[in-house]
């Protein structure tokens, strides 16, 4: 499992970096989305991978920390997902506005070939 998970993070990251380095704003925005998936998965991995042990407490049993998946990376990733959504939205609007002002969707605002 760990191997596939790591490869998954790697593939997302590679695709994200590739797209972020592209000249068109839409490519960059998709790249950022992929990169944020990779990053979130990576942060989530800091709590290690556990199956069927969600961090939900049964009120009738005294909780044993080792019985749960680590909730801290989960909380951090949850925050990251929401903030990521906000930045994606902001970036999208910047992209549209820049396109309106400069007449191009090149990241530099000027057409320079590929």
């Amino acid at each position: 499992m760990e191997l596939i998970y790591s490869l998954a993070v790697g593939i997302f990251c590679a695709c994200g970096v590739w797209l972020v380095l592209r000249p068109r704003t839409f490519q960059v925005i998709l790249g950022l989305a992929l990169l944020s998936y990779a990053t979130n998965l990576f942060i989530f991995a800091m709590g290690r991978l556990t199956l069927d042990r969600p961090p939900l407490i049964d009120p009738n049993v005294v909780p044993d920390p080792s019985l749960f998946d680590d909730p801290i990376p989960q909380a951090l990733v949850l925050t990251a997902i929401v903030i990521g959504f906000a930045t994606t939205a902001l970036f999208l609007v910047m992209l549209i506005a820049a396109r309106g002002f400069t007449g191009t969707d090149h990241v530099d605002g000027v057409e320079k070939g590929d």
Partner: peptide
């Protein structure tokens, strides 16, 4: 760059 970055993250 992308492949190296991806590999690095995976590792």
């Amino acid at each position: 760059l992308a492949i190296v970055a991806g590999l690095g993250m995976a590792v």
